[in-house]
Design a binder for these strands. Sequence first.
DNA 1: TGGCCGGCTCGAATCGTTTCGATAGCCTGA
DNA 2: TCAGGCTATCGAAACGATTCGAGCCGGCCA
Lengths: 342, 342
Amino acid sequence: MATMADVARRAGVSLSTVSYALSGSRPVSDATRARIFEAMEELDYAPNLVARSLKGRRTRIVALLLPTDDSDADPFMTDVITAAAETARQSGYHLLLWTEPFESSTDLQTFVRQGLVDGALLLSVQLEDERVAVLQRDAIPMVLIGRTAEPDPFTFVDTDTEQLTDTAMSHLAELGHRAVAYVGPPPSELERRYGFVERIQTELETSAGRHGVELLTCHPERGPAAGREAIGALLFDRPDVTAAVVMNDPALAGVIQGAQAEGRRVPEDFSVLGLLTSALVADATTPATTAVVGSPTSIGRLAAEAIVEVLEGGGAAMPVRQELVGCELVVRSSTAATAATA
Amino acid sequence: MATMADVARRAGVSLSTVSYALSGSRPVSDATRARIFEAMEELDYAPNLVARSLKGRRTRIVALLLPTDDSDADPFMTDVITAAAETARQSGYHLLLWTEPFESSTDLQTFVRQGLVDGALLLSVQLEDERVAVLQRDAIPMVLIGRTAEPDPFTFVDTDTEQLTDTAMSHLAELGHRAVAYVGPPPSELERRYGFVERIQTELETSAGRHGVELLTCHPERGPAAGREAIGALLFDRPDVTAAVVMNDPALAGVIQGAQAEGRRVPEDFSVLGLLTSALVADATTPATTAVVGSPTSIGRLAAEAIVEVLEGGGAAMPVRQELVGCELVVRSSTAATAATA
DNA sequence: TGGCCGGCTCGAATCGTTTCGATAGCCTGA
DNA sequence: TCAGGCTATCGAAACGATTCGAGCCGGCCA
């Protein structure tokens, strides 16, 4: 690898002149610049980012904090990550993967102190997130994807859960449903105090109330069998329930099958609506599941934009950016008007 | 951030002694070492990785080359990535995301020349992969996940496609199936000359031949509708087909539904076997789809181990490592013996 | 013709490590 | 008592860039 000194020698100028030609931070005559660029060309020169980082005291690398035990969110996460990486790259930044189980932030602590990363993007933020405290202690700029219990004064990007739940409930209410099952994530997710899950629960209740709908909650484990069982038990108790809102991809098919096993046709007698259901899963059920989905791509992009903005902003006091990303109803074939309505 | 000089001053020793105490590359007396570590503790010292990288001419960062237009492999990729990152971390390495569309390796070229990464992990390798040529030109150590048309002399980790196809065909042959449909990936994947896909196709044919099974191929687009249509047309032509092997997650449910629409019960009259089907999708179909799956976690781990080995190995000539990762049959409910056999 | 101004270029210091060569002190053995 | 050998420590030179202050040289004006 050629260095700047090689280029300088070849072009017959000093090291610093090469630097100025490259950065433009001081004027360089056209003739000199031409010779320098020619020399660079001939030597296949590319500036060494490590040296630049050392001198500039910033690496333009952002850590992507990825909890390893959050596999439910996989398809969603991939899109977030890809979009974030793309966006960051366009601004000259890079994303460095930092995977770790949910609780164990001492490693994170020593990691960020090593100065490899300028900032961090936090995925799957929990209501009380240790990682936030750790980063805050060392004043590492960060952007959360998700929200902590007390969102201020952090910059975050999150799905607009209020819109999400409201889109879901209005859709069902308009179709005439008055008693709806909420099939939530498995119990293990609840214990983790994952903000997203709790927010959905309360806002779903609020929204149901507003639409005059009664909501009945259950939290089956992963897998279709658990889904079948949960909806079966629920329908046995409450045969007046005519629809289910499902935020549990692994159990989704089970919910449909369970309802069918109770003698309900889907969607004629019983509607099923997915929440943040991955397209692959929604299309795999019979019938295909109508769902309200977020926009992982926008989230990734916005998060990357936000962290870049913070890092480029230098010391300037910036307004904290808190963005909610809208949701969309993707109509497939699992919801329909109730008999009463139709 | 405290530097080594701060620690040295506080401990009353020279800079170099601190370095030796930390690295152990020269003896340091117990008393001195104790004072040094105490000083580090008090100052919350952590060595600066950027400076270390500059001096050592290696960053211990590995690029993870991730094609952005390969969304079909998502759930699989997430596991590969996570496992690779975890493994790398345990050896003191980091993974840096480099996303780019399939064709555009000039960016990659200038990127690797900047010396930020010591090596690279290539995901979704194609038969003729530009990226390999680019990296080879600059002698960047790499490990492929997948194989190029001519796999030598590269280090790679890949799914054992021969075992994969053979597991699939023996399963169906044992159940008595003699004419089997192969529902492959969408045409767009074929054009890309993705080695994995072509290898599966030929080996499936070989394996079918060996088991006395006739194989009929189709490549529907993504989505259940395409799957229904494809299998419908195929069964219309060839009513003697009693099973389908599907390597196309988005179309999988459609294949099952299409067979049912032709009056076949699944699995009693018609078996469906998934190839590398993601668990989420396999569990979402009715009935749940039996599948032969690879081990993304092992692949990620092995790939990370391999690149670390290469990078740590220094100049030492090492045997090229080429590993094939085995597959496993996950029995669910979509395959059964043919009427003739049962 | 001399002094001044301004545009380009240069040398040197710096970022925080690692590592090589040298030195100071101590012990051992003759 | 002194040469010789160890051991523990120190100083200085890198690694490859950025950036500050200074200097050179030509042109312009008086």
